[in-house]
Amino acid sequence: MSQPATLPRARNAMGRREALSRLGLLSTALLAAGCTPMRIVLRLYPAEFDESQYRDSILRAFVLTVIPGAAQSDPNLIRALIDEDYPLASHSGYLASDLHHSSRSRFGRSFDQLGPDQRTEIVLQAVESGGTTTRLYTGAIFLTQIAYYAGIYDPAAGCRLIGFDGRYRFTGIQATTHPNPDRFLATTLTTTGDPA
């Protein structure tokens, strides 16, 4: 997926003011300071990073950065990040936007066009930047790892990368143990469960 020819346009400013007015409790000082939570809450990032193929392409590159070797063809690769059942869904547009702007600023290219080392550098910098950005990125990494390693969207498949077989297929008890188990077992201390 190639990046847009121009940077996506900003959201409607009136919409932001209306949102502020409705929320009431938010201070304009926080907004002026570019406070990340406010930017997420008020969606102060280009609209194209919400629910677009471009966003998906960036998130896909993010997952492959967190888990090098993950199957690129996996249809569930970024699903956890945009699944409404998980908290990242409402932040995924901002996450994609932040990755895009960081990579443009540092390497002059979109995040999904960077090589693995450059992508790692971008994510590492975000993780170490502190405050809300760190929380957002560590949360996204955490969710990505759970979803991929545990195979949460395809329980039958598991995760081939780490040898997790997923749903049980009958192999028998002998496949779960070693032959001649007595050679492993140590001396016992109690026959009653009471070593006193």
Binding site: Q174, T176, T177, H178, F184, L185, A186, T187, T188, T190
Partner: peptide, 27 residues
């Protein structure tokens, strides 16, 4: 039963045995 103890349990038992420690099969 000994022949039902999972591999990870047998490895742990072996670690304890190597050090001369005791280990029980659980219930």
């Amino acid at each position: 039963a000994p022949h039902h103890v999972p591999k990870s349990g047998l490895v742990f038992a072996m670690m304890m045995k190597n050090l001369g420690y005791t280990c029980e099969r659980a219930r």
